[in-house]
Amino acid sequence: MSDTPIRDTVLRALGEAVPDADVGHLDPDRRLRDQLDYFDSIDFLNFVEGLHKAFNLDIPERDYPQLATLAGCIDYLQTRLAAR
């Protein structure tokens, strides 16, 4: 899977977890938490759940740090999906 559909799905999951956030202008290398006001642990949990559902992928908690940035999310998902 190329990174564009992955990226779109990640942004959609993020938008659902943080309804008011402007996810269209995220710096891919900055931490999501630093760019999104009010992005708390529950939002993050909802975001991970969204990814889990969208990609049908079990994401262990120890991998959570890799999901801190948009670029990190895309890399992580590409790797995981490729390994499947």
């Binding site: 949990l45 991970v48 889990h52 079990d58 908690e61 120890r62």
Partner: peptide, 9 residues
């Protein structure tokens, strides 16, 4: 959490 699915953590 390692034993739990994403939705149950």
């Amino acid at each position: 959490n390692a034993r739990r699915p994403v939705t149950g953590r």
